[in-house]
């Protein structure tokens, strides 16, 4: 069952065609990777998928919690649709604790009004208790529970990346978009992260799209790869075929 369909997607900034004529179909439960040289348009593609940018033309259709197309994307609505993401340049809430960061991810799962928040009515306690329990669960999975009261800016780099994933998961997504989750991690951390991604994918029934430069991670867990170059999708297929694809080799070696 396809859950994401991208049709003839374009995005240009002034004269720069950051994303150019992308067509893509992602099936439910898949884990796919997007690779490509710097500036290929990968992050821009994520920003289009999450409503941060509007397409110059073309469309994106999700068939998740409901069927929606790019017209109705707004960044804050994406978690309601079932889409959550992390950022290439870590965007944690720096002066908030680890626990609070993940509670923000849980934002849309809280169900009590302003009055209840002001007078701390019983729905406040019920919701906060449930939210705290679920978030605590996540923190334990990510090995961050011992640091729940640490300000997120004081975490080591690798843990900040993990916290971003935990925060995204707290929104209970169906589709998780990871923008270079292993960037800045050492080989050991990357290996551990690979395991973790595999595990959460099964545990939470996720579809995952990840952008990554680390080939060991990509080859390890992705069932399918999409290769971007100069905004275009130049190849797609399983990791083995991509490794042998002459267009891909050329793009990476930089020949014309």
């Amino acid at each position: 069952m396809d859950m994401l369909v991208v049709n003839n997607l374009y995005k240009s900034f002034g004269g720069v065609k950051a994303v150019s004529d992308i067509n893509m179909t992602i099936d439910e439960g898949e884990i796919v990777g997007i690779i490509g040289p710097n500036g290929a348009g990968k992050t821009t593609f994520f920003n289009l998928l999450t409503g941060i940018y509007n397409p110059s033309s073309g469309d994106i259709v999700y068939k998740l919690k409901e069927e929606v197309s790019a017209k109705s994307f707004k960044p804050f609505k994406m978690t309601k649709y079932g889409v959550a993401r992390t950022f290439q340049n870590i965007r944690l809430f720096k002066d908030m604790t680890v626990l609070e960061n993940v509670l923000i991810g849980y934002h849309n799962n809280f169900k009590y009004g302003i009055l209840s928040s002001i007078f701390h009515l019983s729905s406040y306690f019920k919701n906060e208790k449930k939210g705290n329990e679920e978030v605590t669960q996540l923190l334990k999975i990510f090995d961050l529970y011992d640091k729940k009261d640490t300000l997120s800016k004081n975490l080591p780099y690798g843990e900040q990346r993990k916290l971003e994933i935990a925060r995204a998961l707290a929104s209970k997504p169906k589709l998780l978009l990871l923008d270079e989750p292993a960037a800045g991690m050492n080989a050991n951390e990357t290996k551990e992260l690979t395991k973790l991604i595999n595990w959460i994918r099964k545990e939470f029934d996720l579809t995952i799209i990840l952008i990554e430069h680390d080939m060991s991670l990509v080859m390890d867990i992705c069932e399918k790869l999409f290769v971007f170059d100069y905004g275009r999708l130049i190849a797609q297929g399983n990791p083995e075929s991509i490794q042998k694809n002459p267009k891909v080799i050329k793009a990476y070696l930089g020949g014309e």
């Binding site: 309601k80 965007r91 809430f93 720096k94 002066d95 934002h107 302003i114 406040y124």
Partner: peptide, 25 residues
């Protein structure tokens, strides 16, 4: 009390990083 609720936390998140706050809903 407002600050100590998820509404209040959302406000603090806006101060910390507006784009990330939006992305979290």
């Amino acid at each position: 009390n407002f600050i100590k609720s998820y509404h209040g936390r959302a406000c603090i998140a806006i101060r910390e990083d507006e784009i990330a706050a939006e992305a979290m809903g």
